[in-house]
Design a binder for these strands. Structure first.
Lengths: 94, 94
DNA sequence: TTAATTTGGTTTATAATATAAACTAGTTTA
DNA sequence: TAAACTAGTTTATATTATAAACCAAATTAA
């Protein structure tokens, strides 16, 4: 039987964010924005959702005088991502 | 760069329908309903969307006196599914 | 025989989600 | 010092998913 997919990850932008962070571990908000081609608003909303789920943690600091938000994937986030991949494989026949 | 995912397929229930039809080629509405554990209403809506996209075709007939809806995947549907799988692989690091 | 129940759905209303527009706060440039 | 830019957040709107309500015919039960 097909497993219920984690709704937090079954979203194109959130999945893209997680996919990126799986590779690089941590990244600036602006970097993620460029890579995903998302609007800042949309990205901000989705980052907050992932943060609330503790799939990523978010640190707000400064790079010189300019605000800088750094996102990093958590252990919980990695596990959720890996489970999502396994669950999806059944749908995709992989 | 990550590709935009086909929004018609990036839906848990529609993906489950397509995944099932990829395996069996054609199936009754009621069979799909049992397998996916969807409500009839939800299934009806999603089947119609897939039909409108020509990813499946739907034949309404009778099994004896009882109405019977048969869904079958189309060539276009198979191709869309396969492309979706390939596109998703990049997100999933497969 | 007619009144409930079941089967096989569709339509429609509502809840959830995604997205973009508008806004805030501070910085740099002209 | 005012315009424009950077780095975001908040909020309003559009889209989507889902469930509830409904319909028609068949079956079963009284």
């Amino acid at each position: 039987m097909l497993k219920k997919l984690d709704p937090l990850l079954h979203s194109e932008l959130r999945l893209a964010i997680m996919s990126l962070l799986i590779s690089v571990e941590k990244a600036e908000f602006t970097f993620i924005k460029e890579k995903t081609e998302a609007t800042a608003g949309n990205l901000s909303v989705q980052v907050t959702k992932l943060e609330n789920a503790e799939y990523i943690n978010v640190e707000k600091g400064y790079k010189g005088k300019i605000p800088q938000t750094i996102c990093a994937i958590t252990k919980k986030g990695i596990e959720a991502f890996e489970k999502y991949v396994e669950d999806l494989k059944d749908y995709l026949k992989l």
